[in-house]
Design a protein around this nucleic acid. Sequence first.
DNA 1: GATGAATGAGCTTTCATTCAT
DNA 2: AATGAATGAAAGCTCATTCAT
Lengths: 183, 183, 183, 183
Amino acid sequence: MQGALELFASKGFYSTTIPDIAISLKMSVGNMYNYFKSKDILAEEIIKFISAYLGKELQRINEKDISTKEKTRAIVAIYFEVAMTKPEMIDYFLRIYLSNREIFRDNCAGMICVNEFVTEVMIYFEEGVKSGELRDQDFFSAFGLFMGYLGGMVFLKGEHILPRELDEYVDDISFNIYKALSV
Amino acid sequence: MQGALELFASKGFYSTTIPDIAISLKMSVGNMYNYFKSKDILAEEIIKFISAYLGKELQRINEKDISTKEKTRAIVAIYFEVAMTKPEMIDYFLRIYLSNREIFRDNCAGMICVNEFVTEVMIYFEEGVKSGELRDQDFFSAFGLFMGYLGGMVFLKGEHILPRELDEYVDDISFNIYKALSV
Amino acid sequence: MQGALELFASKGFYSTTIPDIAISLKMSVGNMYNYFKSKDILAEEIIKFISAYLGKELQRINEKDISTKEKTRAIVAIYFEVAMTKPEMIDYFLRIYLSNREIFRDNCAGMICVNEFVTEVMIYFEEGVKSGELRDQDFFSAFGLFMGYLGGMVFLKGEHILPRELDEYVDDISFNIYKALSV
Amino acid sequence: MQGALELFASKGFYSTTIPDIAISLKMSVGNMYNYFKSKDILAEEIIKFISAYLGKELQRINEKDISTKEKTRAIVAIYFEVAMTKPEMIDYFLRIYLSNREIFRDNCAGMICVNEFVTEVMIYFEEGVKSGELRDQDFFSAFGLFMGYLGGMVFLKGEHILPRELDEYVDDISFNIYKALSV
DNA sequence: GATGAATGAGCTTTCATTCAT
DNA sequence: AATGAATGAAAGCTCATTCAT
C-alpha cells in the first residue's frame, strides 16, 4: 500500500497503472488483485490508511495537556512534518482524494473514509471553544480555514513557489490560524 | 472552451473524452483539433481563461477606493459568487488544475498559467500592507491562507458537507481572514 | 459480420478474440467497436442476421403452391444446403446461439432474436394442419422434432460421424419427419 | 465432479472458473489439480461420467422384455425424467459437450467420450429392426431424429418456451418418434 | 474549415496453472 | 494429500489522435 501510495501521489491516479504498482512492489499484476479487488478499492484503502495515520497524530496532540494555542501550533507542525518527511501522504490527500471524487464516490461519500482525521480536528476545535480560547463559530468555517490553509501551503511548496522550507512557516501560519480562530 | 470547462469540471479530466466534448459543442472531433492541438493544451487554455476571468474580477475590486477590510470581504464575496453561479470555474481550478499536475507540468510550471489571478492577489496584499492594515508577512503565508481557505470551503460545499449556502459564510470567513492578516 | 460469424462458428465464442476478428476483417480493433458496442452485441446481431436469412428461405418455400409433404422436403433440403454451402450459419445457430445462453440472456430472451425463423416454421406447421396433412398437435412438439432432428444431423456431420453427405439424407429425413407429423 | 458438473451446466464452461469449482467443493484450487490435470480434462471426465450414467439407464431399458414401441416410450420418459430431476446432466450434454467442441477436440474426437450412451441407442435401434418393428434405415438418420428431438425439447424447456412440463410431452413425442421410425 | 471513420497502444481485469510449504 | 499465494499471458475495451475526403 505504501508503494501504491507513493506512485499515486507522484504520478496521479490515472497516470499510475496497475503494472506500475506491481513492478514497484516486485509483485505480479495478478497477485495485486488478490489483495485489492480493483484499482478504485486500492485507492480507498489508501485514503483510509492516511486518515487513520494522521488521525492518530492529531489524537496524540489532542490528548496533551496544553493550551489550544499550543495545540494549534503542534498541529501545524506535525502536518508540515508529515508533508516534509512523507510528502506522498499529504499529496495523496490533496491531489488524489480531494480531486478525483469520481473514484471515491461509491464507498467514500461524505467524509467516511477520512472520518478519523476529521473527528480529531473536530475535537481540537470543540475543546478550544469549551476552554474559552476559540470563538464559537460554525465548525466548517474553522475547518476550512485550518485545512484549506495547510493544504494550500503544501500545494505552493509542491509547485516550488515557496522560497523557504515548510517548517519555517510554522510560526507564521499557526499565528495566523490562532489569530483567526481565537475569541 | 466553456463547454469543455464544464465537462472537465464535472467529470474530471481523464473521464472526459474528446468525443464527449465534441458532442457537447456540436462539433466534430477532427475539428476540435483544428483549435486545440491536444487535450493537454485545451486544459491549459482553460486554466488561463479562468485565471484571466478571476483576475479581472479581482482587478475591479483592487481598483476600488475602499479599505483593505472591505476589499477582503469583496474578494470572498466574488469568489463565492463565482462558485455558486459558475461552479465549473472554481471546480476546474481546484480539481483539475491544482490536482492533475502531470497535465500542466510542461507548459504551466510554477504559476505561469494562473499568473493574472495571482498577481491581483499580490496587489491586494501589498496595498493592504502599504496602507498599514495588513501585517507585513511572507506573501505566500497570506496567499495560502486566503486561497486555501476559500478553496477548502468550496470543496466542503461540493461534498455537501456544509449545512448552509456559501454566500452565508461570507461574513464569517472574511472576518477570519482579515483577523488573521491584519496588524 | 460474415467474418465474425465464420470465426465464432469455427472456434467458439470465447475462443474467438476481438483481435482475431479484427485481423480477419483487416480492420483495427478500435474500429470494430465503432460498429458493435461489445462482443456480446456483435453476437446478437449475427444471430438476428442468420434468423432473417433462414427465415427468408423458409418464407420462399411457404409461399410456394405445393403440398406440405413437398414443403417438408424442401425445408430439409434447404437446411442441409445451407449447412453444406454456408456451414458457419447452422454451426453458429447450434453451437453459439443455442449453447451460450449467458451471452444472449439480456437482449435475446425467449426467441426474440430468432423470431423471423421460428415464425416461418410456425406458418409451415399451421398451414399443414389447416390443409389436413399434419396432425394438430402442440406446436413445440413438432418444432422440437423438426429442428432438433435437423440440428442433430448437422452436428453428427460436424463430428465426421455421418458416412454420407448431408444432402444424401434428405429423402430419409424428410420422410421420417413427415411420417411423424402427418395425420 | 458432480459439483463441477452443476457449475458448468449452469454457467457455461468458460464462465465457470476453477476457483468457483474449488469453492463449491470446499477444496483448494491446488488440490483440484491433484485429481484433474487441467480444466479440459475435468470437462472430459464429466462427459464420460454422464455418458456412462445415461448408458446404464438405457441398458436397463434395453434389457427389458418389452416391445420396441414400449422401449421408445421408456427412453423418452427416462430422458425427460433426468432432464427434470438432474437437469445439469442433460444441460451439460447439450450445452457444454455438444457446443464447445474446441474443448473436446483432443481427447473426445468422434464420439469416444459418449460411447457408452451411443452404443445403447444403437442396440435399441438394431433390436427394433431385428424384431421387425423399426424400418431398417441408416442408423444415424434414426439417431439424429431421436436425440435431436429430445435435445431440442429440453432446450425449448430451458428457454421457458414450452407451455407444459416435459413429462407431459412423453406421449406425444414417443408417439412421433415411433411413428417416424417404425416400418 | 469541417467531418468522423480508422488506428493501435495501452488500460484494467481475469484466470488456468504452478509450487513451496 | 492438501493449501492458496503467486504468476503472467491474454482478454475486452477505450480513446487521443490522424487524415482522406
